[in-house]
Structures are given as structure tokens and as C-alpha cells.
Design a protein around this nucleic acid. Sequence first.
RNA 1: GGAUGAGUAGCUCAAUGGUAGAGCAAUGGCCUGUUAAGCCGUCGGUUGAAAGUUCGAUCCUUUCUUCAUCCGCCA
Length: 484
Amino acid sequence: MAFNTRTKIKEVLALEPTGQDTIVMGWVRTFRSNRFIALNDGSTPNNLQVVVNYENTSEALLKRITTGACLKISGQLVHSTGSGQKVELQASHIEVLGDSDAEKYPMQPKKHSLEFLRENAHLRMRTQTFGAVFRVRNAIAYAVHQFFQQKGFVYWHSPIITASDAEGAGEMFKVTTLPLDGTAPKNDDGSINFKEDFFGKATNLTVSGQLEGELAAMAFGDIYTFGPTFRAENSNTTRHLAEFWMIEPEMAFYDIEDNQNLAEEFIQYLIRYTMAQNAEDLRFLDERLKEEEKALPQDKRSEMGLIEKLQFVVDNKFERITYTEAIEILLNSTPYKKKKFQYDVQWGIDLQSEHERFLVEKHFKKPVIVTGYPAAIKAFYMRLNDGCEPGRETVAAMDILAPGIGEIVGGSQREERYEKLVARMEAMHIPTHEMSWYLDTRRFGACPHAGFGLGFERMVQFVTGMTNIRDVIPFARTPKNAEF
RNA sequence: GGAUGAGUAGCUCAAUGGUAGAGCAAUGGCCUGUUAAGCCGUCGGUUGAAAGUUCGAUCCUUUCUUCAUCCGCCA
């Protein structure tokens, strides 16, 4: 006899109650008045109210119905006379599958701070907020595949361990089996002899699958990667993780405009999908955000509610400006004139977060795509724009800036012209001999192509309204923290 | 890596240079159609760690540590 005879609570709540026999299994959120169990099984943010006839239930069993306990309950589904819900389950039999010592269980039926829940990340998904966040995360992940698969993109697995340290996207985690106690084999000059290491060379965890993605785009046309990515940067912010997930599509025969079109359509698709599939979760998160912002002074509150914001982003084209235009806007801005910016503005600077925030949150009040950055501040593989005035060379780069998040997408049209690419690599001291496999794409059947990277957690942040990136990944890896 | 702020009961917070208090939770009893918090009682803390100043430190100083926020790096 199979054990899984339950109906998921999401389905139960949608049923027309006719007193039908129903079996549910889930975890106790609260037990009120010795009579009402709020039961949740993770299928929905909503709880099922289970009514216990305490007069016919043993004292011993009642005592075991505690917050966090796992129960199997069979009973009859009936209309609820209470005001908080449409249906409820009149319990006829309750079985405790797993006790939860109320004295020890950290989750209490009350509001906890996000900091506390972060420290209890192994249990926080049992809360309404994190249940909603991670169901939304799941929906977005699924939508990523759906979007690209519908367009005929090939899901491509770029390696996680890489010997290339030329990807130019920051510090990398070393991968080695050599001993760390100082007995590792050395070269004559005292450096570690990686020829003796597992891979016979120094290897790291990937910071990007892009370069390998480009190889695949030269075979399949359109591909995308979606996997974990690692950065060993000592970044302590609400939008950086040492281990995060990134989606990197790479398309042959795309120029920078095609690239922008795809990225915009992609982001809007993800939001639209989630709004359709996880309406309940978003409603809860919307409410949560409103509650939370009540504590803030008026001017710190969001102008739009979460759902309102998402609808707005789906309904409106993203603003598209060039880097040069962005600089113009900043130079003419009130904060610049009143010297409110901490960092100076002039053509050639990398846009600082305060500048990006001004453009996105104050000036345009919508997502902004900035293109045409100075070549000097961007990566070697980005395509040099033709016809630049001397000293103002730009590349076909694009960043998508989202309100409250900042950079959510970074991408570019790639430099497909062999000579120009090699010249840039040499200028930027990228070892071309180690990258011959990459340069081969430019030797054999090169074509215009483009791609971008979307930070998956930043996307989840944007959709859920969670302000700290550590709250949208199950177990965050950040400097000094690899708990769980 | 830099700046700022913060670590007091399981949680959320309060307090004073004279060795700490509330609400919730837990727990015992009473109650019983409730929507986190019914009523009465009980338990609960080497005030993040170490050192220093002081007759005396949770409070002042230093170092360390952890966390949060902002900045830098980016997705």
C-alpha cells in the first residue's frame, strides 16, 4: 500500500466542499485554541484550516500538535463558518508523522526578522515569505527554459571547472587536490608546480560560461547556459554572492540591437510567466512589502507596489540610451549641479551605482538599457564600434539597469574580427596563446554574434521585491559564510 | 577591501557607571469557532569574546569577532 495518498493543499483549497473524505499531509504553522490547525505543505502560501474535535481527541495527541510538527490528517472537507477561509477540514484522524519539540523549534508563529531567518536558512522555507520567494524562484527558472526552448535555443552546459583565468570577470576560486600544508610540489622558483595537480594545470571555478557559450553559438546558432557561477570577490553588498546562478544566452547573427531586443523580451517574459503562475505568492509578497514599508519614512517608500511595478515593467518598453547620452543626462542633473554625487561625472568614467540609480529611479523611472560604453572600461571580447572619434572609442556593450537592483544584465556584441580581437587582447595583456581555442572561432567561420548574462538571483530579487540577495537563494555563499 | 551602525532571555526590544526588565515563545492550570498574540501562574540571562580604566562596567577605552547597511568589484 503506497503511502502518498494525500491531496496537496493547493488543490484542496480550490475544491468545492461537499464533506468529501480528504487526506492531507503537511507541517503545522500554528495550533489555535486547541482546535484549529493551520496546516501548510508548501504547495501554496495559504494554509488549510483543520478543525480538531478536542473533546474526542486524547490529551497526549493534542500535546503533540505543535508548531513545526508534521501531520497526516484525514477528514471531511466542509464549508468553513469562520471568516478567514472558504473551506476547512474536519479532522477524523490525525497521525503525527514527525514531532517538533516546541521548546526547541526556532520558528515561532510570529514575525521573525530576515536576519534571524537567514541564520536559520534550513528552516526558513517553512515560512510564508520564503515559501513564496522560493516558489517564485522555481517559476522563474522554469520560465527561463520555456522562453529559450520555445525559440529553439540549445541548452548548453559550459564547464564549471576551468583552466582559463582570462575571463576577466573577477577573482576566482582555485580548484586543486594539492595539499595545503606547504608540502605541495614546487617549481625551482618556489611557485606551486601545478603540473602535479589533478588537472595538470592551475584550475578555477568558472566566473562565466560565455567564452564556451560562444563556441557553441558558432555551431548551433542560438544557445543558452543556466548554471552556477563563482566569484571570489570580497563583496559585502545586498546584491552580490560568491556562488550564484547566471543565464548566458549567446546568439549567432545577432548585433547589439538584436541583443537588446532579446534581453528585454526575456525579462518581460519571465515576469509575465510568474505573474500568471504564482499570483498568490506575488500577492503575499506585495502585501509583505507594503507592511514592511509602513515602518519607513514616506520618502523611502516605493512609489509602486510590487505587482504594480511588475505590471508596469511588462507594459512599457525599456528606455534605451547610449553611454554618451547617459553622461549628458547626468551632467545636466540636479544632483550633479548641486554636487550631490560622491563620484565625479565625465565621459570615460564607469557609471557608479549612484549614477545608475539616478538614471533608473529618478530620471526614467523604468528599466534602462545603456549601450556604447567606452572601450577602456569594458572587457576585451566586446566589439569595437566603428566610426568613433579618436580618443572616444566605444564598444557594443549593453547593461540593463533595473530599479532597486542596479545592473541585472550585462552583455555585448562580440568582437568577431580576428585582428581587432587579438589587438585588444594584447593591449589588455590577455595571453592569446592560452586562448587559441577561443580565437579559433574567429579563424574558422566567424560571424557577427552577441550575448548577455542575466543574474538569476537579481531577477528573483526584482520579481519578489526582496532587498537582500541572500534572501532569494536557499543557502547563500558570501564572504565568511558557507553555512548549511 | 573601505565607511557607518549594531551584538542584552528562544524571538523582538528596553534600561542605568552601583551586577538587568517588558511583550511574545516555552511551560503548568483554566477557557474553547479561532485567524501571530484568550485568562492566571511559572521558567528563563557569566548583557558577542578578551583585555584595560574604575571601589564597582551591560554602559567608558582598546583589540578581536559576527551581523546589518552603504560604497568598490559585478550578474
